[in-house]
Amino acid sequence: MEIYCPTLSNRCFPELQEKVKINELFWWVPRKSPCRNALGMFLTSIATPILLNRFRKFDVILAHSQPSNWLALQVKRSLKIPYVSYLHQTNRFLFPREIDQTTGWLTDPDMEFLRKIHKLRTVIPRLDRISIKSSDYVLVNSEWIRSKTKTCYGIDANVCYPGVDLSYFKNNIDMEEISKKPYILTTNRHYPQKGLHLLIEMLSLLVSEYPNLECVMTGSYTNYTRQLKDYAAKLGLKDNVVFTDNLKEHDLLDMYKRAYVYTYTSPEEDFGLGPLEAGACGVPSIVWDYAGPRETVINGETGYRVKPYCVKEMSERHLRLLDDSSLRYKMGEQASKFIQENFSWKAHIDTLEPVLNLVAG
């Protein structure tokens, strides 16, 4: 097995990159180039003929969303090598979510660059559709994306849920310790699409009863981070909202293990690994009752699902857990069990491997 990508970013799982060899197709693009990742994706799309020979030795290709689906189609046509498309989302620019249309992509120059290319609307929609529908098999990461794939491409795909490393994310919660200084944790990119401002708004409804309650937000800083900091200051929460920037893996794990509750405010998340990692560590999650996260949180058992954008209801669910540490502990235990039984890497491989063997023949 070999792994390929257009370009690598040291901000994306840097410690994992040290453990796994990843072949960077366009390594020569200067690291400081603006929109480097988008440029790599664009080059992959147009330079397919000169890339083909790299894949001659493989029996099957697992293509994780565009432009890998397009590349895999060209390999199949030229070298007769089959491919499996694994979609974590439908094409974000051809089939934008409501939240994308509302917020835009100015926070992420790479995404804005790609949006402008797709806006040309030339043959891109047709090529995208052909490369997905020509797949020998289509997998998706959630029932939510399965429904989107059926609507957008007319394909009834099979779900292959991502997993978490249960040997790393373990449940060894010390309730007495975390109850001394409880905090809300969220782990997400700092993009408007993630709805982090809603979490700050929700926190403002809790501090009257828990004035020292903190909300810890991990993730690399963007210009949206400044907006979040200004909003927190405006609500008098400057000292209650903690921005950690990007964390090393062991520091992130420590944040999970000491969290009182995990909160996910992305309103249209395709899947979302955060509730899985939190649950594996024995931390209940509170999410919107919509899209991907509704598949990973059992309402009233492993956490709570709340009506989207209903900040008041979300605050009430937080108060319920903050007021009752025994309930929080019970939900955390049930979350850990649920994740172990349904979202291990073994479960992921048990679904993926037979598909690859089938397609490879």
Rank of each mutant, 00 (worst) to 15 (best):
Y86K: 08
T103D: 10
T187K: 01
N223T: 04
D323I: 00
D324K: 01
E214R: 14
G303W: 12
E18R: 15
L166P: 08
V140A: 00
I130N: 03
S220M: 05
S179K: 05
Y221E: 14
C310G: 01
I117D: 07
D350M: 01
V359L: 03
V306K: 02
D165I: 04
E177L: 03
P125S: 14
P308Y: 10
Q17G: 06
E341G: 02
T244E: 09
L322D: 12
T187F: 05
T225V: 09
L213T: 13
G292N: 08
V261N: 01
L235G: 07
E2I: 03
E176R: 11
C5P: 00
L358C: 07
L321F: 07
I286T: 07
F271H: 12
L358M: 14
R305C: 15
F169R: 00
S179R: 04
I349R: 07
G274C: 05
Y83M: 05
F95Q: 08
G163L: 03
M202E: 08
R115P: 10
R36H: 02
T107Y: 08
P82I: 04
A38D: 04
Q193F: 07
K170Q: 12
Y210E: 11
E214M: 05
Y161W: 09
N69W: 07
L51K: 12
G303I: 04
P284Y: 11
P30H: 08
R226H: 10
I145M: 02
K119L: 10
V20M: 14
R126P: 00
S326T: 06
L252Q: 00
T122N: 11
L199W: 02
Q74S: 11
S336Q: 04
L253V: 05
T102Q: 09
S134E: 14
W345V: 01
I50A: 15
E214V: 03
I50H: 15
Y168I: 05
F243N: 13
N357E: 15
A291R: 09
K80C: 06
E313H: 03
F93R: 03
D254M: 05
Q74I: 01
Y262Q: 14
L203F: 13
K76R: 06
W144I: 05
V20I: 15
S179Y: 00
S179N: 01
G104R: 04
G272A: 08
S134M: 11
L16C: 04
V123N: 13
G300T: 02
R226W: 06
R294V: 03
G361Y: 15
D270M: 05
D270T: 06
K337T: 15
M331D: 09
L247R: 04
V287F: 13
N299G: 12
K312C: 05
D110G: 08
L228G: 07
L39Y: 09
S285A: 14
I298A: 02
K32A: 03
A72P: 04
